[in-house]
Amino acid sequence: MSDHRDTWSSGDTYEPYVGRWSRLVARDFLGWLSAPDDLRWLDVGCGTGALTETIVSRCSPDAVVGVDRSEEYLAYARARVTDPRVSFRAGDAQALPVKDSEHDAVVSGLVLNFVPDQARAVREMKRALSAGGTAAAYVWDYAGEMQLMRRFWDAAVALDPGALELDEGRRFPLARPAPLVELFEGAGLQDVRVLAIDVPTVFKDFDDYWSPFLGGQAPAPGYCMSLSEERRAALRERVRSTLPIQADGSIRLIARAWAVRGVAE
């Protein structure tokens, strides 16, 4: 399931690639949950802290605990999110370092598809929840309308059929409504619902689109930087030819995430 190119460490390169868009999704996701104030939140796979930060700014939490495998990401998150209600620890989504039933809302943003045992991860989310608490997550619509990645992989596969096995649309079948519902219901969560969250991803020019793929972070940039300079240039031009570049040079795409939520009894 995981790949050697799935590298996750530097927050500085993750931010321009996905972090800046994931914050927009986080905002809409929390709006959908419309959680009351003063909840105890757990953010599973908090990464650079985009969702945790949004919980702090929008949800008046009692406390937020962010858990991520990557200590490098946590260091970045901790430097960014200094609210005293927030704490971070290194941990695995499949073996959360928290006691049973101590959280009112357990959330996970853009992570579940990367977890090897997804069913176990959602069971862990449910275990952490108090009765009546909400578990919720979102993942990019890799196979569909996460357009900035979709355009990249479609061009990559057109030039290199070997890229097909790295294409996240293919690698992450979870990231569709029916499998997400099945996953949450399979963990024993009730009243499971799904929502498509579309956010605009507006690039001021082609460089603004392309340069994050040169950061080497996450699957698509990892693939991009594994190519020779010549093949990378060919890919760049192929991608450029498929993008809707406006007269002023800007590129307006959308990014869709599928969000899922359920309630613990």
């Binding site: 260091a75 290194a90 695995d92």
Partner: peptide
């Protein structure tokens, strides 16, 4: 024994 590194508890079984 789980380490605390840079003030962050490292609650990974592998560590």
């Amino acid at each position: 024994a789980y380490p605390i590194r840079d003030g962050i508890p490292v609650m990974l079984i592998s560590e």
